[in-house]
Amino acid sequence: MKKSVGILGIFGLLVTIVLITAILEPSFTTPYNIQNTIRWTSLFGIISIGAAFVIITGGIDLSVGSVVGLVGVLLPMLLVKLGWSIPLALLAVLVVSLAIGLLHGLLITKMRLQPFVVTLCGLLFYRGFARWLTGDQTQGFGNSFDGLRQIAIGRIPITDSFGIPMPFVVLVVLAILAGIFLNYTIWGRYLLALGRNEEAARYSGINTERMIIVAYVIGALTAGIGGILFSLDVNSVQPAVHGNFYELYAIAAAVLGGCSLRGGEGTILGVIIGAAVMRVLYNAINILGIPTQLEFAIIGAVILLGVMADELVKRINEKRKRMEMQAASESV
């Protein structure tokens, strides 16, 4: 019950922003704009799911944007410059992502380094590596991979002017898998438990280190999948900036969606709605003609307000619960 209340809050925020923007500027509701917003929401939603898994363990992954950047340059290089086949190139970049996640997880659990430090170094390293690899030259697919690019820019037509963007399909599939993993498997239970209290989880026989590694692998893999889609979407990947700040968007979406940085809390649906709030807000700023210099300020303020409201609701719930228990104990 508590979980659904949390989601309702963020969903309410999303609806409010959508309504206000739609009323102030009717062009917000054009099929093209809606389609586009859904596409971007989906792309960010995908990387936010992974960020949420890491945050649920009580950790943080700051390397998401750089992984998006690295994968973004690797894929066109492998396909265009080295002429690898599409399945092989996709497999290769996913393996690279997986290896990155594994490395993070091992450093954090076996070496006992702090997640912030490990992934901050990752952020710097993968970005630098991507720039060196490409000599800072913009990478792209040219016109020869339009078929592959459909998974990022394609859509399933519903009407003449509106279709469901392909990234949304990818997002839905990933979200369902993530939701099942988190809520219906033993490993999801392990993650939620160790996120709340790693020590108690260990005392209950859970291999907490293994599960933390799994979370970082999931985080890096979704960053890799996101990286593939972002790269195919833009078709001209600048190694120095592609994916910059995306880790912060992902973390913000997760936090807005009800994840606590203390760990142990969060729902997949909430995180996706969180990503949607970010994108709709961004879109609203553009479409309403608000100076784009204010973009970060507005997004920052909304996140802060959202988190504050969430905290207040939690406190009220807590108080009510305590009163209930007191009443119950006195009537016994």
Binding site: A193, N197, A200, Y203, G264
Partner: peptide, 17 residues
Amino acid sequence: EKGLIIDMTVRENIGLA
């Protein structure tokens, strides 16, 4: 600190091991 996941439910705690 070690015996319970204090913010999880009775059911989740009893089931954990």
